[in-house]
Design a protein around this nucleic acid. Structure first.
Lengths: 124, 124
DNA sequence: TCGCATAGGGATAAATTTATCCCATATTGT
DNA sequence: ACAATATGGGATAAATTTATCCCTATGCGA
């Protein structure tokens, strides 16, 4: 990884959580791996908006952070399977909670995000 | 806000959640506001690693996304108080879950993050 | 023999996010 | 007079993250 010019802030727990979960696709990757989509090509199909490259990068980071592990099969064409480590499994309920919140508020969120700069939301 | 060149991905709930929660300090801001630290200067003292500027920017975004509201008192020196909207309150348990996870795994996380590129963690 | 599937990663450009610096307001205390 | 307090935001630089492009490898099927 690149030499970091600005040191990470790792003061409180939330900093640490941020460090392993930030990344445009990481949460989704964990979620899908947990749901049984183990191969890179499957994940790519599940997340078509991400390029192959970024998924690799983020999978590598998740692996380096000990949330997922990688099994390489010595076959051709190549076959790789990711799975959660036992540590990685502990984060799944957290993601579940977040997803549940997002789903329950999907319409509202979509509205707020889309209408920024068009109108101020009523306070409440 | 700046014109965005690459459109946001807002397919699933998690994308939406990401859109309002991403930002280096947003989660902490929500947490502290909920804990009763309402004034910008208080928040700044609570999060000394962030510059005043960024906190303002992120507070503005949280407000635009309808998670917090701002009350300005017409006094000098200026006084401002933020508080959660009722919608903002609904995200607090989610942050709580994340924080709890992070605290429970603090040592492990700290270890993993610090030792990247020094050794590969044992699988498990 | 070409094309496809599968996986991985270097190099570099572009986009986005953060950081830094600076200025403004108006009152109270030194 | 001058510093400090409190809040806010413009302008611009720097850092970081994503996106793009391209190249590698090896069998299988058309």
């Amino acid at each position: 990884m690149r030499e970091r010019k600005i040191p990470l802030n790792l003061n409180c727990g939330l900093d640490l959580a941020g460090e392993v979960l930030y990344g445009k696709w990481k949460i989704r990757l964990l979620w899908f791996i947990n749901a049984g989509h183990k191969r890179p090509s499957e994940l790519q199909r599940k997340i078509p908006d991400a390029s192959r490259r970024v998924l690799n990068v983020q999978l590598n980071e998740l692996e380096a952070h000990g949330l997922i592990k990688k099994k390489i099969f010595a076959v051709v064409p190549p076959k790789v399977e990711y799975s959660l480590t036992s540590f990685g499994e502990t984060i799944i309920p957290v993601i579940g909670t977040l997803g549940k919140w997002a789903d329950e508020n999907e319409n509202r969120l979509r509205d707020l995000i889309q209408n920024i700069n068009i109108k101020q939301p009523e306070e409440n």
